[in-house]
């Protein structure tokens, strides 16, 4: 099977629930197929691996045409909370876990999690700010080195 994918490196750059799940599903799905998976969290995507934010990731209800509701309705206080609750319930039904459990699942599967150096510097963070599943902080150069020979997916 010369055409099979052996390794993927997935960049997660968004901080909304609908922005982080695709990358998490693809990373976990790669491991399910026996594909090596590296997940690289950058910019707002870093929220996924931050101890203080991992449980607070919400659906973006403002300026999100996918919500099919006027922006002013999305801006009503509590809308994002409600949309997050509804989406989480739907996902749980099809066995997609909450973000924290998903991160544990991917790490237990052998998927590797990395934080982006530039973002860490920008926010003045250190390894102490991250969940224990994070391997290390990588520069973009190190990320490319790590990704050599595999596919890179940006989300």
């Amino acid at each position: 099977m010369a055409d099979s994918i052996e390794k993927v490196s997935i960049v997660i750059s968004k901080g909304s629930l609908e922005g982080v799940y695709p990358g998490l599903i693809m990373g976990n799905g790669a491991r399910m197929e026996g594909i090596e998976a590296n997940l690289f969290f950058t910019f707002f995507g870093l929220d996924v691996i931050r101890k203080d934010r991992i449980d607070k990731i919400k659906v973006g209800t403002v300026g999100n045409p996918g919500m099919h509701m006027p922006t002013w309705i999305g801006a009503i206080p509590g809308m994002s909370w409600l949309a997050t609750k509804m989406m989480s319930r739907q996902m749980d039904k099809i066995d997609i876990p909450p973000v924290r459990e998903f991160i544990e699942m991917i790490a237990d599967s052998g998927g590797k999690l990395y934080a982006c150096q530039a973002t860490v510097d920008m926010y003045g963070l250190s390894m102490d700010d991250f969940v224990p599943q994070v391997e290390k902080v990588l520069t973009v150069g190190e990320f490319y080195e790590l990704s050599a020979g595999g596919e890179i997916i940006f989300t």
């Binding site: 976990n28 026996g34 997609i96 876990p97 459990e101 699942m105 237990d108 599967s109 052998g110």
Partner: peptide, 21 residues
């Protein structure tokens, strides 16, 4: 699902991947 397998088969995810890499 993988999640259900890890939760209800009696074998946790980590070991599942050790058994079936």
């Amino acid at each position: 699902s993988m999640r259900a397998l890890g939760k209800t088969s009696g074998v946790a995810i980590k070991e599942l991947y050790e058994l079936f890499p």
